[in-house]
Each structure stands twice: as C-alpha cells, then as structure tokens.
C-alpha cells in the first residue's frame, strides 16, 4: 500500500511535468524523424510492411514500406467470385493488418508521421516566416468540401472493382485506370523528389485516359504546393486515407477526449487548429471528440486554458491534459514583458 502511494505520486509528478510540455516542439522532431524514415528508410534496408496507414509511397525508391492505399487498390482488383475465395481472404487479412497498425496511433499518423503532412507543415512555417496570411474556410464551404474525401475513397474502391467486374451491365473499366488514386496522388510525384528523382513528373500521351489522369496528377501536385502555402494542411482535407482512417478512429488506442462541463467555449482550440475544425470548440457533449479531419496534432490541447478539458489518452489513461499552468507556460514569452522583479516560473 505504501509503495503503491509512492508509485502513484511519482506517476502524478510525471503527469504534471507532461502537462506543461511543449508538444508542438516534440512533434516537430518526431515529424522530422519519421519523414527521414519514410522517405529514405528503404536505402537503409528498413522494412515496415505494405499496410502502412500513411503515405509511404512505393514509387519512391527510398520508401521502407508501402502505403496501404496502393495495396488496397491492387487488392480490390478482383472479380466478385475471387473476392469470396482465398484471394479475398488475403485482401481482408491485409485490411485487418492495416487496421491493426492504425489503431495504435489513431489519427496521429496524420499529425506526427505522414510525410505529406510534414511537408505541408514545413511549407506553412515558410509562409509564417515570410509573414503572409493564411486562409480559412467559412463554415458553409467547410461542410461542402469535407465530403470530397469520401467521394475519392469510394472511387478508389469502386474503380478497381469495376475493372474486374461489371457494374450495372456496363463494360469493365479500362485497365489504364489501375491504381486510380495513385495516378493523381501528390505523394507519387513529390516524395521521389526528395531523392532527386523526377521520373514521376510526366504527362502520358499514350491514350486519352492516361493523358487525363497524368495531367490531373500534375495539376494536383501543383495545387498541393499552392494550396499548402495558402491554407494550413490543405491536402489533408481531401485525403482519402484520412477518410478511411476515420471509420476506425473510435477504436483507436490513442484517444483525444473532451470533458464538456469544463469547457468555456472560448474557441482557443478552434483558433489554433490547422484543419479548422469548429466542432472541437462547439461540441460540449461528446466525449470522443476526434472528427474526421482531425490529425491529432494536439495543438488544441496545448491551447486549452482550462484544467482537464481536453485530454490525450492511451486506452483510458490520461497522458497529456489541458491545464491552466501548461497553457501559460507555453504561451507567455517572458522576454516580451517589461516587468521587473519577475520570479522564475519553474517550480
């Protein structure tokens, strides 16, 4: 009993220190590390499998694994009869592996690990340094645009199936449409550039389909850079990986929860949210607060000035909570103040 108290006190002390941590700074370093891992890891013979829940693009020679979306598109290139046979089993096993990887970090794959996300964050930092303002969507546009990623996800699933099977009595879809999402994904064109590989940037004049798809790919790549410059995490709003992940987010091990009765609806969380989620500020009833666009970067938890309003949990145990002291420690920069006789706040 006595030793249990000591352990509890020790854990509580650790938690207090954790609550004051600057998670954004930690995240920067984790993002850098994972970017290097995912873009160059293959050169060091690192293998992380083919069900990775983030853009570990196989078109990039240095990739240590394979982004699940390409595996999914290949895996769905089955006829209905094949789907219910052992080949279909392979698909479902792969799918379950993906879910297994995903639920460990939940949507934090987006915020901490995804290389496309990291790239966008670096572009944002550049814009900030220059001092150019960012744009936000108003709520009407937000509601309309957020549906696009689900449409892309459906197409990503339907088109491969449509290539092996016939929908509504129409002819199967042209094979040139294989891996349709990869043909337009900015990951395919951009990530190889990190190894000075420009081979993915091309327009394929073979036939009409390839022409359209490859042009679309180039346009989306350009849009990626321009969009990310103008709006924080522009691409994430349309990302089908995000849509796929959200379907299983509720069972994730890493969780973001909210205690609505402590919420003053000050909106700080929404203000700092890169994706611009308003639900985090306005919803005061739900406990599991991760919305589909959320990338679990936890900037909201850092910006919340109330004790125990937003919490990051592993299963049900809190590992990082919003606290008053944590907020002030992160936001106040003492060298900005002209105050004399200021005591050091490290207690």
């Amino acid at each position: 009993m006595y030793s249990r108290n000591i352990t509890m006190n020790y854990l509580q002390n650790i938690k207090h220190k954790a609550d004051r941590a600057n998670v954004s700074r930690l995240r920067f370093w984790i993002q850098l590390f994972t970017f290097l891992l995912i873009v160059y890891g293959g050169y060091f013979f690192i293998h992380i499998g083919s069900q990775v829940p983030t853009f570990a693009c196989p078109y990039n020679q240095g990739s240590p694994g394979t982004c699940y979306l390409i595996a999914m598109q290949h895996g769905l290139h089955l006829t209905w009869s094949e789907l219910v046979s052992y080949r279909g089993l392979a698909f479902f096993t792969g799918f379950l592996t993906f879910i297994g990887f995903f639920i460990v970090f939940n949507k934090a794959w987006c915020g901490f690990i995804c290389p496309l996300g990291t790239l966008q964050d670096w572009i944002t930092k550049l814009r900030y340094k220059i001092g150019i303002r960012f744009s936000r969507y108003d709520s009407a546009s937000f509601q309309k645009l957020k549906k696009i990623k689900y449409v892309i996800l459906v197409l990503l699933i339907a088109i491969p199936l449509g290539m092996s099977n016939s929908f509504f009595g129409l002819a199967p879809i042209n094979h040139d449409m294989q891996s349709p999402f990869c043909q337009v994904c900015p990951g395919r064109t951009i990530l190889p550039l990190a190894s000075a590989d420009t081979s993915q940037i091309f327009i394929d004049f073979t036939n009409k389909t390839t022409l359209v798809m490859s042009t679309l790919g180039i346009l989306i790549t350009a849009l990626f850079f321009v969009g990310a410059f103008a709006k924080k995490r522009f691409f994430c709003f349309f990302c089908p990986m995000s849509a796929l992940q959200f379907l299983f987010s509720r069972i994730g091990i890493l969780r973001l929860t909210k205690n609505g009765s402590n919420c003053t609806r000050c909106g700080n969380c929404n203000r700092v949210c890169d994706v611009g989620i308003i639900g985090i500020a306005e919803d005061i009833t739900s406990k599991y607060i991760v919305k589909d666009d959320c990338m679990m970067c936890f900037k909201c938890v850092e910006a919340c000035p109330e004790d125990n309003c937003l919490d990051v949990r592993v299963f049900n145990a809190k590992i990082f909570s919003s606290t008053q002291e944590g907020f002030f420690k992160r936001y106040i920069q003492p060298n900005e103040l002209s105050l004399k006789n200021e005591k050091n706040d490290e207690r």
């Binding site: 900030y128 303002r133 960012f134 700080n268 203000r271 000035p305 907020f327 002030f328």
Partner: peptide, 16 residues
C-alpha cells in the same frame, strides 16, 4: 479569466 490563443504572431491572426 479567458485567454487569447494566437497561432501565428502576426496581425492577421492576432486580431481575430
């Protein structure tokens, strides 16, 4: 009581 949380310390974010 209530605090101001600024993401980017330029006028375009501080004022809103």
């Amino acid at each position: 009581w209530d605090t101001v949380a600024v993401d980017e310390w330029h006028l375009y974010d501080m004022i809103p």
